[in-house]
Amino acid sequence: MMQDNRSQVRKVLWLTLLLNLFVMALKLTLGLASGSLSLQADALHSITDSVNNVLGLITNRFSSPKPDREHPYGHQKFEAIGALGIAAFLGIACFEILRGAVEKIFLNTESAAIKVTSTELWLLLLVLGINIFVAFYERNVGRKVNSPILIADAKHTMSDIWVTIIVIAGLVGVWQAKNLNIPQLEWLDVILAFPVALLVFYSGWEVIKENLPWLVDEMAIAPEAIHDTVMEVSGVLNCHEIASRGILGRQVFIEMHLIVDTNDIIAAHKITETIEEHLEKRFGKVRVLIHVEPPDYEEEDISFGSTEPIA
């Protein structure tokens, strides 16, 4: 049986939701006080963090690994769907950052309207510290309980860290431009927005790359690895048409056709149980479906569509 870690995930999501709401409010207040469009845009970007937490709480409610009548294979794909939702928000954030930078280049050239104080910069460092704590906390717990929604949200928060760093660097440039007599520093706020947008986009792509294989039932374990493990069991003569899906370490389903060296049903059943034990020992929690066949059904192909014979 798959372990249900949803309660741990919910605790993390509620804590990070409260912290993200505080960060968003502080950024928006500082952005309006200083007149910094980049900081206001960063506050809008932080809204997606809170939305992600709410989305995570919703999908967590429906993502039980335990099967039921309507969902005989469990509900964990709901978490993958939630992670893809986070990827969509990252894409929106990327677009908004680029749009804001372009608008500032062509429509808002009066950087003098921005008023930055050392107090505001120190408060932004506090915001940065909170984001760093949230990102690493979510990532560590997500890896511990194998939660894709926490890992995806940690990537999103990590992108928010980079955005905040860029905003601080740009505001420091504006703050010191006149003191250092380097007016070009006033454009740091805009120029550094472009690499930040790329970092946000990359984070979204990583989330998609990690969760899409689960949703499209991509192979979870190489059939050759499964075949080698099965053939180690005494009494197995042939194993073919091996298929697997899911995510290794999270939830994996394995199917195979098997030929055993016995005509006794009870003995054949004991062999299949031994196979399940071997597979679980090597690959972790798996759910195995074995179709026992007579010797005449022996095949050389290990997996569906395989062209390589069994060694």
Rank of each mutant, 00 (worst) to 15 (best):
V12A: 15
V12F: 07
T16E: 06
L17V: 01
L18Q: 07
L19H: 04
L21N: 07
M24A: 14
L28I: 12
L30G: 08
L32K: 09
G35T: 00
L37K: 13
L39A: 13
Q40V: 12
Q40D: 07
A41P: 06
A43G: 15
L44M: 14
H45E: 13
H45L: 06
T48I: 14
T48P: 08
I58A: 11
N60V: 11
N60M: 10
N60D: 04
F62P: 01
S64K: 10
P65T: 09
P65C: 13
H71E: 05
P72G: 12
P72A: 10
H75F: 14
H75E: 03
L84A: 13
L84S: 12
L84C: 13
I86A: 04
I86H: 01
L90N: 12
C94T: 09
C94G: 07
L98A: 14
A101Q: 05
V102N: 00
E103A: 03
F106N: 10
F106S: 11
E120N: 00
L124W: 02
I130N: 04
N131K: 15
I132N: 06
F133C: 06
V134T: 05
V134H: 01
V141H: 09
V141E: 10
G142T: 09
S147P: 11
I151G: 02
I151S: 05
H156V: 07
M158W: 03
M158T: 08
S159R: 01
V163H: 08
T164D: 01
T164K: 00
I168T: 02
G170F: 05
G173M: 04
Q176W: 04
N179C: 00
P183N: 05
Q184K: 02
Q184M: 02
E186P: 00
W187V: 08
L188N: 04
L188Y: 06
V190L: 01
V190R: 01
I191E: 06
L192W: 02
P195N: 01
P195S: 01
V196C: 15
V200A: 09
F201K: 14
F201P: 00
G204E: 06
W205C: 00
E206W: 11
L212V: 12
L212A: 05
W214D: 09
W214K: 01
D217W: 10
M219G: 05
M219H: 06
I221W: 02
A222M: 13
P223S: 11
I226M: 03
T229P: 01
V230H: 04
M231G: 10
H240M: 12
A243Y: 14
Q251C: 04
F253K: 03
F253Y: 03
I254D: 02
E255C: 06
E255V: 10
H257N: 14
V260C: 09
V260K: 04
D261Q: 09
D261I: 02
D264T: 07
A267N: 10
E273D: 11
E273T: 07
H278V: 06
R282M: 02
F283Q: 07
F283R: 02
F283V: 10
E298Y: 07
E300Y: 12
D301F: 13
D301C: 14
T307F: 14
E308N: 15
E308T: 15
E308F: 13
P309L: 14
